[in-house]
Computed example of a mutant assay.
Amino acid sequence: MSWFREQTGQGPTLLLLHGWGMESRVFAGWRTLLEPYFTCISYDLPGHGRSPCTATGMHWPELLQQLQDLLSREATPPIILGWSLGGLLALGSALSQPQGQSGLLKGLVLMASSPSFRQRPDWLAGIPASTLEEFGRRLQTDPQGTRKRFLALQVLGDPQGRRALDGMAAWPSPDTACLADGLKLLQEVDLRDDMETLTLPTQVIHGAQDRIVPPEAGFYLHQHIVGSQLTMLEHAGHAPFLSRPEQCRDALLECWI
């Protein structure tokens, strides 16, 4: 197992997990606002950035076990902040512990995330299955183009987020096999049945203009995680830490410092 790790800052440990098709440097600008208050640790998910896509790829059980192994190596239990797919992984890791709580974690921040990214007959607060299937087909022939289209969707209707995302589409594309694995997780994983077992201190941060994960998913997380706090950012899209970095920082400080 080899996830690239970067650590900066001082204060309580905040572990950052990025979303599908991205890498940890997506947080680089925002980290400068966090470092006076938090020890920031970020990982590149397998096949993304500086982490290789190993034989285990990004399959759900193995991914959760790898993250748990990484958490066990930290000197103090971190607050784990997951954005988008990273939020699904963070939530899954928390739920995989006995009764949804573990001495490996101090808290959980779910940013622009959901317990189920794909729409289902009883769940409309997600991405249409046909959209994810189309991304999967395009990924086989044009990985970089598919990734660029997904990034554009993240900041649709969010001009400030779009400006912040400029240049990121030119980053090297993640490993195609791991991209496909990650897309499969977005299609298949559904954690709704276990939500109310989670007793870990949790904060939900969501953009009211999110075009990938509807705000209803953020409200659902808040309603089904006992004692959670919700910050709904009125003018932010799917990447609120890019378009509203100070507001996202302040929300963290109010909850954790």
Score class of each variant (00 low, 15 high):
residue 182 G to K: 05
residue 161 G to Q: 03
residue 205 I to A: 02
residue 190 D to I: 04
residue 211 R to Y: 00
residue 144 Q to V: 01
residue 167 G to W: 05
residue 184 K to W: 14
residue 148 K to G: 08
residue 204 V to L: 02
residue 154 Q to T: 00
residue 194 D to L: 08
residue 189 V to A: 01
residue 161 G to Y: 00
residue 142 D to M: 09
residue 162 R to W: 10
residue 166 D to C: 09
residue 164 A to R: 12
residue 186 L to P: 04
residue 203 Q to A: 05
residue 201 P to A: 00
residue 186 L to T: 05
residue 201 P to I: 04
residue 182 G to L: 04
residue 207 G to L: 03
residue 158 D to Q: 07
residue 166 D to T: 13
residue 193 D to S: 12
residue 147 R to V: 02
residue 200 L to G: 03
residue 202 T to N: 02
residue 181 D to G: 07
residue 145 G to E: 12
residue 180 A to S: 15
residue 178 C to A: 13
residue 202 T to M: 05
residue 212 I to F: 06
residue 207 G to W: 07
residue 171 W to F: 10
residue 168 M to F: 15
residue 211 R to G: 01
residue 153 L to Y: 06
residue 150 F to P: 00
residue 156 L to S: 14
residue 164 A to S: 12
residue 172 P to G: 11
residue 163 R to Y: 10
residue 194 D to R: 13
residue 155 V to A: 12
residue 201 P to L: 03
residue 167 G to H: 08
residue 186 L to E: 06
residue 183 L to K: 10
residue 147 R to E: 01
residue 196 E to T: 15
residue 171 W to N: 09
residue 158 D to G: 10
residue 156 L to R: 14
residue 212 I to Q: 10
residue 189 V to P: 02
residue 186 L to V: 06
residue 193 D to Y: 00
residue 189 V to E: 12
residue 210 D to M: 03
residue 146 T to S: 13
residue 178 C to L: 13
residue 178 C to P: 06
residue 151 L to N: 08
residue 203 Q to V: 08
residue 150 F to N: 10
residue 149 R to W: 12
residue 155 V to D: 01
residue 145 G to A: 11
residue 183 L to D: 03
residue 180 A to N: 13
residue 180 A to Q: 15
residue 187 Q to D: 06
residue 189 V to T: 11
residue 186 L to K: 06
residue 185 L to K: 03
residue 164 A to H: 05
residue 161 G to C: 01
residue 174 P to L: 11
residue 199 T to K: 09
residue 175 D to S: 14
residue 145 G to T: 05
residue 193 D to Q: 13
residue 166 D to G: 08
residue 150 F to V: 02
residue 172 P to V: 10
residue 161 G to V: 03
residue 149 R to L: 15
residue 147 R to W: 03
residue 151 L to F: 15
residue 182 G to T: 04
residue 194 D to C: 06
residue 156 L to G: 04
residue 158 D to N: 12
residue 159 P to N: 05
residue 206 H to D: 01
residue 203 Q to R: 00
residue 151 L to K: 05
residue 181 D to S: 06
residue 208 A to W: 08
residue 200 L to H: 05
residue 156 L to F: 09
residue 151 L to Y: 15
residue 144 Q to A: 15
residue 161 G to D: 11
residue 168 M to L: 13
residue 145 G to D: 12
residue 175 D to H: 14
